Structures are given as C-alpha cells and as structure tokens.
Computed example of a mutant assay.
Amino acid sequence: MTDAELHGCLDFIRQTEKLKDVLRNSYTASGRHESTAEHSWRLALMAMVFGPDLGQVDLLRVLKLCLIHDLGEAIGGDVPAIHQTGGPDKAAQERADLITLLEPLDAARRADFLALWDEYEAAATPEARLVKALDKMETIIQHNQGTTAPDFDHGFNLDYGRRYADGHPLLARLRRLVDADTRARMAEAAPPPRRTGSDG
C-alpha cells in the first residue's frame, strides 16, 4: 500500500463516522433512536451467529455485504421502509452517495466496495439474499424489542422482506419466530375490546 492509499483509507474511515449519527425510525429498548451504524453492526453479528448453519455460503463475503449495505446512508440518511414507495429512487440516491463516500479510496477498493453494494442491492448471489433476509429481520427484531410510537404499523412487518427468508430453511424458521414476536407486539398495542350490554 502506498502512502497515498494509506491516507485515502484513513480519510474514508473518518468520513464513515457520519453513519454513527444517522438515525433510523427504530428505537432501542431504552427509548433512544437507533443509528444506522448500530443496525449494521447487529446485522453483521446475526450473520456471525447464524453463519455456521447457513449452508454453503462465503461467510466473509456475507459479513462484507452486511457492512456495506447501508453505507451510502452516511450522506443521504435513512428512509424508513414504509415510506420508500412512490418517492424518488432510494437505491439510485444511495448508490450515488456511496460513490461520493468512496472517493478517497484507490480505484481497486472503490470498485470492490461498489460491486459489493450492487450485489446486495440486486440480491444477485446466495450471500446477498441471505443478507437481505437478515437485514429485514434485524429491523423487525428492533421494532419488536424497542419502543414504538402508538400509531406504529407492526402489521407492515409481517410481509416486509419475507421473500428473502422463505427460500432458506433456517431463515424461514427464524422468520416464523420473529413474526410471532410481531404478532405479540400487535396484540399488546391493540385497544381493549369495547364492552357491550349492561354493566349490571
């Protein structure tokens, strides 16, 4: 590695610190906003936990995809999944932001990181589809574990990203457990039934 490449890598690392300040629509169990960096960290941890049972996949590649998948949000911020329809193309903007963020790196690293992001976005490999499935489940787990607004739509989570988990036996089982937690949260949030008739 040349001195210029070393300085470029260090500058890139400094710029990615912005991801720590990008707040998501999720809250932690203590009631504070979760950051995108925290989401990416726990997604990578999930991949590490379940990795030995995910079958014939490249676990190192899975972990790289976990770390890169939301990196563009360091510039443009997070758009909650429920608000991603009907607006500007979130993926195109996030990709453009990632390209900006990658500028300090040498050409080979820029190409490698962007290729990983493209692979994830297109769900083009078994590794990318696994990360997509875990990404959606980590988000739902946080919604179930953390505090939510009174009007939060937990029902949206029952279909969110399901298609990525359904094709993998372990992830389908995990998704059923996560969905059971979602239904429990929905039941907790439901208003009590109205009483009818005489209270005698």
Score class of each variant (00 low, 15 high):
Pro169Glu: 07
Leu134Gln: 13
Arg110Asn: 10
Thr85His: 07
Lys64Asp: 03
Arg95Tyr: 00
Ala123Ile: 05
Arg173Val: 01
Thr85Tyr: 06
Ser26Met: 14
Ala44Gln: 06
Ser26Lys: 10
Val49Ala: 05
Lys64Cys: 02
His83Glu: 05
Ala92Pro: 05
Ala122Thr: 12
Arg32Gly: 09
Met1Asp: 06
Asp106Tyr: 05
Leu134Pro: 10
Ile75Pro: 03
Val49Phe: 08
Glu17Asp: 14
Arg176Tyr: 00
Lys136Gln: 14
Trp41Arg: 13
Gly77Val: 00
Ile82Gln: 10
Asn157Pro: 02
Gln56Pro: 11
Lys136Glu: 15
Thr2Ile: 09
His83Leu: 13
Gln84Cys: 08
Ala189Leu: 14
Leu105Tyr: 02
His7Asn: 12
Ile140Arg: 06
Ile68Val: 06
Glu103Gly: 01
Arg14Glu: 08
Arg175Asn: 06
Ala44Trp: 01
Thr182Val: 12
Val79Trp: 01
Glu119His: 14
Glu121Trp: 12
Gln142His: 13
Val131Asn: 13
Asp159Ala: 05
Arg185Val: 06
Leu6Ala: 11
Ile75Lys: 12
Met48Phe: 05
Ile82Trp: 09
Met137Cys: 13
Asp3Ile: 10
Phe152Asn: 01
Ala184Phe: 13
Gly155Arg: 15
Ala96Trp: 03
Ile140Pro: 00
Arg195Val: 15
Pro192Gln: 13
Ala189Ile: 10
Val62Gln: 01
Thr148Val: 15
Ala92Gln: 07
Ala111Trp: 04
Asp135Trp: 05
Thr147His: 09
Ala37Ser: 03
Ala37Trp: 04
Arg109Pro: 11
Tyr164Glu: 01
Gly8Ile: 03
Asn157Ile: 06
Asp106Phe: 12
Arg194Cys: 06
Ala107Thr: 06
Arg173Asp: 15
Met1Tyr: 14
Gly161Ser: 02
Leu171Lys: 02
Ala37Phe: 03
Thr28Gly: 14
Ala123Tyr: 15
Leu101Tyr: 09
Ile75Thr: 06
Asp89Leu: 15
Leu170Phe: 02
Lys90Ala: 05
Asp21Cys: 03
Val62Cys: 09
Ala190Pro: 03
Ala44His: 07
Glu17Cys: 05
Arg109Val: 09
Arg185Cys: 10
Glu5Asn: 13
Glu38Arg: 00
Asp118Gln: 15
His154Ser: 08
Ala81Asp: 03
Leu71Gly: 07
Ser198Tyr: 14
Arg109Ala: 15
Val79Ala: 04
Ala81Leu: 06
Gln84Gly: 03
Gly55Lys: 02
Ala37Val: 01
Asn157Trp: 10
Asp78Trp: 00
Ala111Gly: 09
Tyr160Phe: 07
His143Leu: 09
Thr196Asp: 01
Leu116Phe: 10
Lys132Phe: 01
Ala122Arg: 15
Leu170Glu: 03
Ala149Tyr: 04
Pro104Tyr: 04
Arg162His: 03
